[in-house]
Design a protein around this nucleic acid. Sequence first.
DNA 1: ATAAGGATTGAAACCGATTTCAATTTTAAT
DNA 2: ATTAAAATTGAAATCGGTTTCAATCCTTAT
Lengths: 350, 350
Amino acid sequence: MENEKTNSKTITIYDIAREAGVSASTVSRVLTGNAAVRQDKKERIQSIINKYNFRPNALAKGLSDTSTKTIGIIAADVRNPYYSALFVACEVAAEKAGYSVSLANSLGEKEREQAQLDLLMQQRVDAIIQMGGRVDDLITDDAYAEKVRNVCRTTPVVVTGKLDKAPVHSVVIDDAMGMSIVMEHLIGLGHRKIALVGGEMRVNSTFLKYQKYREILAQHGIQENGEYVVNGTYDPESGYEATNKILELSNRPTAIIAINDFAASGALRSIREHKLHVPKDISVISFDNTYITDLVMPKLTSVDYNYDEYGKILIEIATQAAMGGETDSIRMIKPQIVIRDSTGPVPKEK
Amino acid sequence: MENEKTNSKTITIYDIAREAGVSASTVSRVLTGNAAVRQDKKERIQSIINKYNFRPNALAKGLSDTSTKTIGIIAADVRNPYYSALFVACEVAAEKAGYSVSLANSLGEKEREQAQLDLLMQQRVDAIIQMGGRVDDLITDDAYAEKVRNVCRTTPVVVTGKLDKAPVHSVVIDDAMGMSIVMEHLIGLGHRKIALVGGEMRVNSTFLKYQKYREILAQHGIQENGEYVVNGTYDPESGYEATNKILELSNRPTAIIAINDFAASGALRSIREHKLHVPKDISVISFDNTYITDLVMPKLTSVDYNYDEYGKILIEIATQAAMGGETDSIRMIKPQIVIRDSTGPVPKEK
DNA sequence: ATAAGGATTGAAACCGATTTCAATTTTAAT
DNA sequence: ATTAAAATTGAAATCGGTTTCAATCCTTAT
């Protein structure tokens, strides 16, 4: 009942061996190139392989090799251009290193994330890269931390972000530096009334940015205005609402830092509806430098992480770990600002 | 040299069996639930499984089952929200059906696409879904068609689009109907000078739209203006340039149909730079209804395909085909218009 | 022509599950 | 208490590769 495919029988290494009049071992040797085979036999076997377009069963290979040359990737949501950019960068880098990747989306659900961790482990991927998602919850959720620790026991895990609850490898964006660059850019343009839009403080990367924001304000002798910081959920609608609140203040800021490009697009809409102009009346800057920066008007100044490089590093660490490299490594990604049309000099006081 | 992981030995069904004092067969039976096991033994085994957090090796399982419960998906580029939306819809639908998915991006390169087809076949996915990509080239590229035919011999392939060169299953968007809806919407608003922006005629879905566009113009007795049709490459920049050309015509159109939301965003920019307003001076409508429609100003009227439903159908066909269903099925997706702020009544002649 | 040495080769074991088949244990019926 | 029928169980084969190890085949030097 199960296997009633009408497909032609899939051909195996034994079929090739029989037709070539050699043993399966010999066919395997030409397949892997791990050992010498006499030239004429090699050619004969190769031609039969070509004739049938034979491809060795990756399951059997992985079972015997104990390596699948596959890296599992769990992303929060590839519909977010930040993750899709990073995923594609990983895929390309992996391919260069002779690995393929397999993607799963956690969609921000802890249960999905754990199920996917399990699944990838079962599939015997050589390493798992976890981008975003509910990693931050590990700090509070012990059962979850235990699960990750368990996975780490058999499969190396690389996480984008920091994590002390489990022996994972980390690649972290220097969020403080990112905020620092943003603040210096704005302050250099004369801004002193700077608002922060979007983000949840329980998310580490957001919290680090906030800390730096305060630190730099202090450095420049600027009094922090609590009303200028409005949390949100990283989407356009939330950026829109947060900005609405801010623009209704009697003492409006002259610059808005959005937690990501999505929130910034919402901010732009709110600003437009308040009949203000960017960057003449108010500057907007954001993080992630996704293609969204190019779609909205004006084009957004944003903080970039060099996704190609970022992906390359993730894959590098993952493959090294897969080959038994040391655990607990940590690498930093240095952000860079990409200046477009949404930031400009502070407007003159009237 | 190869296997110098310091990880603890991965535990197998035999380890569980030994500790439970039963045979591996019995452990397997509680794992799969395919056969009865005495209650007390079952519980003992289950508790040992839990104790070690044991997960059966999916490679070994797949090898013995001849089903991996995995569906391979090849997308043109998940960075495009059309594909990411469809991919996530597939992932969710697959999960409900007890399958997992594995994603590869062809990035519009024929060689990558073929390599990925090969790889997925080697990984013994139960079916392959190919979304977009160079499928259209199959019509002209015989070597490629031969490759696909070869894959089809062992693994069912589901394609988004039509294809007679290989025995694949098809899910196609009714592009003609989409264009029809768009045209009726615009004509209903009084527009008669309607331009078409972006797209390459060699791409079937684009060509079908163009055909319907002409057909409907004719139906309404509107003379086609060749200058109103400007091809492009589906990205913002291309939509921008095409629209620039159109807006420099002496006899400007009052509505622009963009081939997708990206092109539409470029069109909006061009229109803005020409000091025109949407939809007061000119209406803009596009295809795909991605989240981009929500980011730009004004929000875009666009044609939606109900991605959840679309993904569900793709997975349905893929899983049925995997279980030996008939080949060569074809399903149609009916598009729907989502009206937002970018389309309005034709401006009064001055 | 022959022995030593290296190059090729195949048989068999292994990777970790599932499943068939026959044997054994339970349970139910008489 | 017996026996037939039903429920459990384990041994062994299988899935399709890779690799070890011992055997066989060539070379080349003597």
